[in-house]
Amino acid sequence: MHPFALAAIGGVMIGTSAVLLMALTGCIAGISGIVGGLLPPKPVADRSWRLAFILGLVAAPAALRTFSGDVLIGPPTVGTPVLIAAGLLVGIGTALGGGCTSGHGICGISRLSVRSVVAVVTFIAAGVLTVFVTRHVLGA
């Protein structure tokens, strides 16, 4: 199947997950929020569904490996120092901005939240600029 068709099907699965979570538990399927709620200094009270969600995320590639023989996980494109810096930035940014590609991107846009649309435009612009600088200016 063409990668773009798979991408759209994957998107539909992500959307189905978000609707399921909202319909049954009333929660937004935002990964940074789900993970962040478990962290100190003040972890939230409803931790079990969050832990289960994360377990589900990690179990998915294992299931794919069983049925298709491929986990469909690509290798990192950068070295460890860049991964550490990028990880810190992603953690700080999503916690400060209150969401990531899923919470603001999928769920926020679907709720027609102006905050989320602004966040999505901002993080895509920052990402585009970053890739432009690292690949085409610095030539990394």
Partner: peptide, 19 residues
């Protein structure tokens, strides 16, 4: 919101990983 999204975007572009 704006600073957070911008910081997240930089990290996202550097490594290609969101949460």
């Amino acid at each position: 919101l704006l600073a957070g999204a911008a910081i997240f975007g930089i990290g996202w572009g550097l490594a290609g990983y969101c949460p």
